[in-house]
Design a binder for these strands. Structure first.
Length: 812
RNA sequence: GCCGGCAUGGUGAAAUGGCAUACACGGCAGACUCAAAAUCUGCUGUCCGCAAGGACGUGUGGGUUCAAGUCCCACUGCCGGCACCA
């Protein structure tokens, strides 16, 4: 038997789908809301590097699912587009002078070609590309909505700076003190930046995670990243000054143990608190801290450093005078930038107090300890950071931590010296980049009107042509040098103004692309609300886990803002999320050029066909887990498809399949149906393999069985599916055919194997009618000679009988 | 250190608390063939045994249960994330 001619079949059907727009989606009102599905892939950055077999994994999965849904009568929105602003094209432009738009468009063509040979059922009529001005016009428009809502602000605080990418980075883009993209050590730099106030949505970004059908790991990562912590804000009066230091603490119950305070080197009170004697030392320390990178301030510098200001603060609970220190272990960006230090109950304060010989007073004792009963103790030998019972705390002695926290917070509040407070680890989003290839931020700086947005009628504010793409590295983008572009008139007063020269980060375009797919050519609005109501929210979103906090957090933030503006219908954009696992190389290592273990999908398609590659990638194991590629392994999937092809050459008969085979058919439909709907594609394929192997034993195929098998296989191997469907005499795409139905009555076996156990160990089995009663099963089991041997001379203490399954004799 | 996940044959893996290893790769044997490829059939967890059969077996150690890969407790290893966040 010759190999089935996939190299002819596959292009033929791709052309057929393309010409007939088989997968075009429209807002057809005849589909009820519950018969509509929006299935989305994370869109790619069209890199010039080309794909490896792991890249299309998620695309194949969603494609199978969409084809399955269509056959089950759903109206499916399944679009694809390109995240096309980004540094690689810009860096290539710097090297070669080629305009990034040109490189990007070429890469998109290449990318589309490479994925289109896989037979993916996208509605390409909805394709979008974030770097095209008819798209980014609306990215700019949304930015203006954020600006007008007060959610965008300028700042000059020190930021994360990547010296290699020559741009500022958001917190989320820094990993282990390195730039997430290029792994260069991040430094601190003070330049003017645009920041988005994502922290204003921290509580909702956290709370709304609960209702999402997302992997626990991703939800946990976002919860961690948002990092909500509850405590108290406490005010410490500065001795001899009309000033107070505000601190945030999660342990107000340890206030009696606060023996000193620490403010960050950037704290606004640094100058005022420094006494003349300490001024020189303070200035030197602050200067040194400013030069340290975040990495030096954290990972590398576990040894505590600091300097005394010379000033003292008054502890509100006991009036004690405590010294105020400056140290870079306190971060200006968290809480109030100042802490009360309780060395006995905080590891960091403990290390600092030891280093500078500051007093340590224990105020919490382990529950049940002698100290807890006594309410007092001597100098502690180690730091105790857990909860317990208050000691050395005046009237509060004996109070458990939780009660103490609540009580002291109320006590402080009554005296106007504190209140309940919630803090988030999440920082505002550093949103501007000092680079060329991004959306220009549509703002004009006017000397008399301030910063004003570009009027909607003037959007898109397009990128000007430049002669050099090179970033200046000084914190100005290449746009700053284009005078005719920078110099403009103020949209409010008409006077001279200057354009904002920062551009947006790559995340901007991906924050709302899923909305534009619904209405990709709308020139009047970013999306028509009626279309949003038709499709949103996204029912299934599939993509890589690397976006767990970055893209997924940013997009959720923008979506909530759009919701608040009444522009979208849901508080969350992506109801269900699945992270496809990584495809490793044959050596079980991450697939990468440098390791030389990259497998190219073009080669696989040429040798085995796209259908075989699709089926194999889904057959390998669960979608979510990482697994190594095996070119030898694809043979099994290839053989399965070849068997289907060979079976299609057999004559068809109109008789019903024989009893056992009919049951197998219906059980297979039930299995494949269930597993496909839950994306358990590997076990669905396995079930089809079993059915095809059984049916292949016949010389002539029952038409009903064959038709069902072809339709079940079609979402998985769509080209072969169409070919076999037409070979069956059909004249319309199998994607328009109904998914086969199963008869539950035919899924039940008349006779089942019942196993017999002695003390839980399997000793024998027998066949019995499926509905045989307990008495009958026990009688049959007891009658077996082998079982009689085991029971002989033993006392049967108990018999467990599960009808249709087993008989277990418990003996001794 | 904290948070999340994973651990089953030579390999990818399957298994509503009820026959561990379905399906596939690889391997072995056979059929077909002058021969090979392709295809088809059978066998393939480990150990003992000529066999019948038996013992052991899902990272480790405990536990719950008539029965545990599955539930509970403690641990080990690997992967991912966070990490001076008060």
């Amino acid at each position: 038997m010759a190999k089935y001619p996939f190299s002819e079949i596959e292009p033929k059907w791709q052309k057929y789908w393309d010409e007939r727009k088989t997968f075009k989606a429209s807002e057809d009102p005849s589909f009820s809301k519950d018969k509509r599905r929006y299935v989305l892939d994370m869109f790619p950055y069209p890199s010039g590097a080309g794909l490896h077999v792991g890249h299309p994994l998620g695309y194949i999965a969603t494609d199978i699912y969409c084809r399955y849904l269509r056959m089950n009568g759903y109206n499916v929105l399944h679009p694809m587009g390109f995240d096309s602003f980004g540094l690689p094209a810009e860096n290539y432009a710097i090297q070669t002078g080629t305009h990034p738009a040109k490189t990007t468009r070429e890469n998109i063509v290449r990318f589309k070609k490479q994925i289109s040979i896989l037979g993916l059922s996208y509605d390409w009529g909805r394709e979008i590309s974030t770097c095209e001005s008819d798209y980014y016009k609306w990215t700019q428009w949304i930015f203006i909505q954020l600006f007008n809502k007060g959610l965008a602000y300028e700042s000059e605080a020190p930021i994360n700076w990547c010296p290699s990418c020559k741009t500022g980075l958001a917190n989320e883009e820094v990993k282990d003190g390195e730039c997430d993209r290029c792994h260069t050590k991040v430094t601190r730099k003070r330049i003017r930046q645009w920041i988005l106030k994502i922290t204003a949505y921290a509580d909702r970004l956290l709370a709304d995670l609960d209702g999402l059908d997302w992997p626990e790991a991703v939800k946990a990562m976002q919860r961690n990243w948002i990092g909500r912590s509850e405590g108290a804000q406490v005010s410490f009066r500065v001795d001899g000054m009309d000033e107070a230091i505000e601190v945030f603490t999660t342990r107000p119950d340890t206030l009696f143990g606060a023996t000193y305070m620490v403010i960050a080197p950037e704290h606004p009170l640094v100058k005022k608190l420094s006494t003349s004697g300490q001024k020189e030392a303070v200035d030197a320390y602050v200067d040194k801290a400013a030069k340290k990178s975040d990495l030096e301030r954290t990972d590398l510098a576990k040894d505590k450093t600091g300097v005394f200001t010379g000033s003292y603060a008054i502890n509100p609970v006991n009036g004690a005078k405590v010294p105020v220190w400056i140290s870079d272990y306190v971060l200006i960006s968290y809480g109030t930038g100042a802490i009360m230090a309780v060395p006995a109950h905080d590891e960091r304060d403990w290390a600092f107090a030891k280093a500078f010989k500051l007093p340590i007073i224990q105020v919490v004792a382990r529950e049940g300890s002698p100290e807890a009963r006594l309410g007092a103790c001597g100098d502690p030998e180690e730091c105790f950071a857990e909860e317990g019972i208050a000691v050395n705390s005046g009237n509060w002695n004996g109070t458990p931590t939780a009660d103490f926290k609540a009580g002291i917070t109320k006590w402080l509040e009554e005296r106007g010296q504190g209140k309940l407070a919630v803090n988030y680890k999440l920082r505002d989003w550093l949103f501007s980049r000092q680079r060329y290839w991004g959306e220009p931020i549509p703002l004009v700086h006017c000397p008399s009107c301030g910063t004003v947005p570009v009027p909607e009628a003037d959007l898109p504010l397009t990128l000007p042509e430049v002669t050099s793409y090179e970033p200046s590295g000084t914190g100005e983008s290449p746009l700053a040098k284009i005078e005719h572009w920078v110099n403009t008139s103020c949209p409010v007063c008409g006077g001279p103004g200057k354009r904002e020269t920062n551009t947006m980060p790559q995340w901007a375009g991906s924050c709302w692309y899923y909305l534009r797919y619904m209405d990709p050519t709308n020139a009047k609005a970013f999306v028509d609300r009626a279309k949003v109501d038709y499709w949103m929210p996204v029912d299934l979103y599939v993509g890589g886990a690397e976006h767990a906090v970055l893209h997924l957090l940013y997009a959720r933030f923008w979506h909530k803002v759009l919701f608040d503006l009444g522009l979208v219908n849901s508080v969350e954009p992506f109801q269900r999320l699945i992270n496809q696992g990584m495809m490793l190389g044959e050596d079980s290592q991450k697939m990468s050029k440098s390791r030389g273990n990259v497998v190219n999908p073009d080669d696989i398609v040429r040798e085995f066909g796209a259908d075989a590659m699709r089926v194999y990638e889904m057959f390998m194991g669960p979608l979510e887990v990482s697994k190594p590629w095996s070119t030898a392994g694809i043979l099994g999937s290839s053989r399965f498809l070849e068997r289907l092809w060979a079976m299609s050459e057999k004559p068809l008969v109109d008789d019903e399949p024989s009893g056992e085979l009919l049951k197998l058919l219906h059980k297979t439909i039930r299995k494949v149906d269930g597993d496909t709907s839950t994306l358990n594609f590997n076990t669905a394929i396995s079930a089809m393999m079993v059915l095809s192997a059984e049916a292949n034993k016949l010389d002539a195929l029952p038409r009903e069985l064959w038709s069902a098998l072809v339709r079940m296989a079609a979402p998985y191997a769509p080209h072969l599916g169409e070919e076999l469907w037409f070979k069956l005499g059909n004249t319309e795409s199998v994607s328009k055919a109904p998914w086969p139905a199963f008869d539950p009555a035919l899924c039940i076996d008349d006779e089942v194997t019942v196993v017999v156990q002695i003390n839980g160990k399997l000793r024998a089995d027998f066949r019995a009618a499926k509905d045989a009663g307990k008495e009958e099963l026990e009688r049959t089991a007891r009658a077996m000679p082998k079982i009689q041997d085991y029971l002989n001379g033993k006392v049967v203490a108990k018999i467990i009988i599960v009808p249709g399954k087993l008989v277990n004799f418990v003996v001794h």
